[in-house]
Every structure is written in C-alpha cells, then in structure tokens.
Simulated scan of single mutants.
Amino acid sequence: MAIKREGRLCSFCGTSGGPGTDVDLVGGLGAQICTSCIDEFHAIVHDEERTSSVRRTMPWDRMSTTELVATLPQILASAEQNVAFAQEWVDMLRERNISWAEIGRVLGVSRQAAWERFAKKSGDKSATA
C-alpha cells in the first residue's frame, strides 16, 4: 500500500495541496506543510526581530474571536488527516504481516484494543494474526 499525498492539506495554513494542485506539500507522520508556509517560517527564523516577536506571544493570542472561530474547522481537518494517516499506517503494517499484538504493544494497548480501533475501518478482520 502506498500512502499518497493527494487530497492532503497543509497542517499549518489549511491549504489543500499535493499532486494535481499547484500547492506542493512535504512532511511526514501525518503533518504536511506547503512550500509557502516553509518560506514564511524560514523568513521568521532568519529575522531576529520577527523571531523575537513570535516568541513573545502565541498566534492565537493575536487572533480576533472571528479568526479563532474560523480556524477551528482547519484544526479539525488537520486532526482528521492525522487519524486517517494512522489508519493508513496500520493498514501498511498489516500488509507487511505485522501482528495486532505488535501494533498494540507499540501503541501501549492490548491486541484487542488495537484491532477494535483499526481493523473495522480497514476491513482486516484477522483478530489473531
């Protein structure tokens, strides 16, 4: 199973990107970042005044209530993207014959708990493998 970038969004600005769009995304472990955000963060990191300003307050401290409310759907979309990525990762592990016991062990849960969380969505009904 190949994990694809199609339909992903930038975990920082919420812009949809990936193949078939004009927005390049890079990243891993579920988080994706577009090249525009990389450029913006690079500019901040290499400008002492901007870096100092960013360190003084968190982004949400500078946002209006309207901006905070408008950002909530982006936060949830990013979280859902990460949950979907975890599902894809488990599917890939199962395709490589990694047992539910091993998946549960690394997640700190029982084999059954791992299976209940992930198998029903992937169609893998093998509770004992």
Score class of each variant (00 low, 15 high):
residue 2 A to Y: 01
residue 3 I to V: 14
residue 5 R to E: 03
residue 6 E to T: 12
residue 6 E to P: 00
residue 7 G to F: 01
residue 8 R to I: 02
residue 9 L to N: 03
residue 10 C to N: 12
residue 12 F to N: 04
residue 19 P to Y: 05
residue 21 T to E: 05
residue 22 D to K: 02
residue 22 D to R: 07
residue 23 V to W: 09
residue 23 V to H: 07
residue 24 D to C: 03
residue 24 D to W: 06
residue 26 V to S: 14
residue 27 G to V: 01
residue 27 G to E: 04
residue 27 G to N: 08
residue 28 G to E: 11
residue 28 G to F: 11
residue 29 L to W: 09
residue 33 I to Q: 12
residue 33 I to P: 10
residue 34 C to I: 11
residue 36 S to K: 08
residue 37 C to Y: 03
residue 38 I to N: 09
residue 40 E to F: 11
residue 41 F to N: 15
residue 41 F to W: 12
residue 42 H to S: 14
residue 42 H to P: 01
residue 42 H to A: 11
residue 44 I to T: 14
residue 47 D to G: 12
residue 51 T to D: 01
residue 54 V to M: 12
residue 56 R to V: 05
residue 56 R to W: 04
residue 56 R to L: 11
residue 57 T to S: 09
residue 58 M to N: 09
residue 58 M to T: 03
residue 58 M to Y: 12
residue 59 P to T: 04
residue 60 W to I: 10
residue 63 M to F: 10
residue 63 M to G: 03
residue 66 T to F: 04
residue 66 T to C: 01
residue 67 E to W: 05
residue 72 L to H: 02
residue 74 Q to S: 09
residue 75 I to Y: 10
residue 76 L to Y: 08
residue 76 L to Q: 09
residue 79 A to V: 07
residue 81 Q to P: 13
residue 85 F to H: 15
residue 87 Q to L: 12
residue 88 E to H: 10
residue 90 V to Q: 02
residue 96 R to A: 08
residue 99 S to W: 09
residue 101 A to Q: 12
residue 102 E to Y: 11
residue 102 E to A: 15
residue 103 I to A: 00
residue 103 I to N: 02
residue 106 V to W: 05
residue 108 G to D: 08
residue 110 S to H: 10
residue 110 S to D: 08
residue 112 Q to R: 15
residue 115 W to E: 04
residue 117 R to F: 02
residue 117 R to Q: 07
residue 119 A to R: 06
residue 120 K to N: 11
residue 121 K to M: 06
residue 123 G to C: 06
residue 124 D to E: 06
residue 125 K to P: 00
residue 126 S to A: 08
residue 126 S to K: 10
residue 127 A to W: 10
residue 128 T to L: 04
residue 129 A to E: 05
